[in-house]
Write a protein that binds this DNA or RNA. Structure first.
Lengths: 210, 210
DNA sequence: CTCAAAGTACTCCAATCAGAGTAATCGACC
DNA sequence: GGTCGATTACTCTGATTGGAGTACTTTGAG
């Protein structure tokens, strides 16, 4: 989007790994897994090799050596270049400093909320609330374990952020459920009519939308 | 991911539009724009035509008619099928009821936070905070206008959700900034050392990570 | 009345991605 | 010592995606 080739954060993850030590692609993936980075960055092989090839083409990583053991496929060990280190710092700085529009599925779903009947929506949102509750409880249990294990919060911040997001989503959903159940949501009457009659109701956005 | 072909929410948006009335693709895009759905759903022509073709192949939409006016390219008008209506309800229900893992860029960035020096991180996060503040103020102004215009909250929920997310992100970032600035973040000492010495510090995750 | 700018309605393509598939090795259990 | 499953280390393929490009039409300013 912004810089060329700064689309997939997996590339950033690769740079960070290679910054610590030269590695072959599969080792990168294992390192990311071991540190649970695969929870913050989409990781799959198809992309991994493509992404590394692209970094290579852009001169941000270079081949350090290739080795083979037995008849396993040859392993290509990459190292980060100076340009790569620069790109790493610059990209990370950008990601940290400038918020950029995301398109969460739930936001999309909410924007089509009137397409399901109010009572069904209520049920669906309550389901979501339950699942959110579970996720939050799971996270809190995990945190206790990790804290006991002595991992400093600094290396855990991304999970805390995910937790904060979940909590915000829960609060929002909770409030929405209450507004629908309690009948206080503005537009609810029109929504009800829309699903009771054959759908021949004057849309309230007709003027407002233009 | 879950169902086959339920990857791009734009397809859902198309189904919702065609549910209201048969349309040609470009009209779908204009309708979505007019209702600001392009803020909740990624909309671009390349995907739009691909997505509609895929819906067509799956039998969820059908060609209603084709017309042409003047020598402009022929317009193919699509309508939703019964299977399409079913898919619409089912997909929307799933999106509303089951939260599904997202990978926001900021979460990725946070997970590599130790790669920049603490003081730089502080500066970057403060930058972000400022930008978030701007976005939030902008949203609040927009809301006032829309409320005055008489658009019911029901048709605005997705924006309220985005707003809630921004606020949660602001609170999180604020807290993190304070912890770094105030020196109370667990792991900060190690982080400082890492960037002051040549990087030869024992990593505190060595035991914890396995 | 004329010309430029904005809008209409797509089409094309290179790049990227997800995930299934493959093929070799290792450990370990009976 | 054989074979079952897990792990290692990729490779391939079909979809998707974003963005640029095209070719006409309508509007509106001078």
């Amino acid at each position: 989007m912004v810089g060329k080739g700064r689309s997939n954060p997996l590339a950033l993850a690769v740079l960070v790994c290679l910054y610590e030590a030269p590695m072959h692609p599969y080792e990168v993936s294992q390192t990311l897994r071991a540190r649970h980075k695969d929870e913050s960055v989409r990781l799959n092989y198809g992309s991994l090799y493509a992404v590394i090839e692209s970094l290579h083409k852009r001169g941000l990583v270079a081949v350090a050596e290739t080795e083979r053991s037995g008849r396993l496929p040859e392993r290509t060990i990459y190292r980060i270049t100076d340009a790569g280190v620069h790109e790493l710092r610059d990209w990370l700085a950008e990601l940290l400093a400038v918020p950029h529009k995301e398109y969460p599925d739930f936001e999309a779903a909410l924007s089509f909320l009137p397409a399901v009947a109010p009572d069904e929506a209520l049920q669906l949102l309550r389901d979501r609330l339950e699942r959110l509750e579970l996720a939050i409880a799971g996270y809190e249990a995990a945190r206790q374990l990790v804290e006991k294990g002595g991992l400093p919060r600094l290396l855990w911040v991304e999970a805390e952020f995910a937790h904060a997001r979940h909590q915000a989503e829960r609060a929002f959903t909770q409030a929405l459920v209450e507004e629908i159940a309690g009948g206080t949501l503005d537009g609810l009457a029109w929504w009800r009519q829309l699903h009771e009659t054959g759908g021949d109701v004057e849309a309230p956005w007709s003027r407002a939308a233009r």
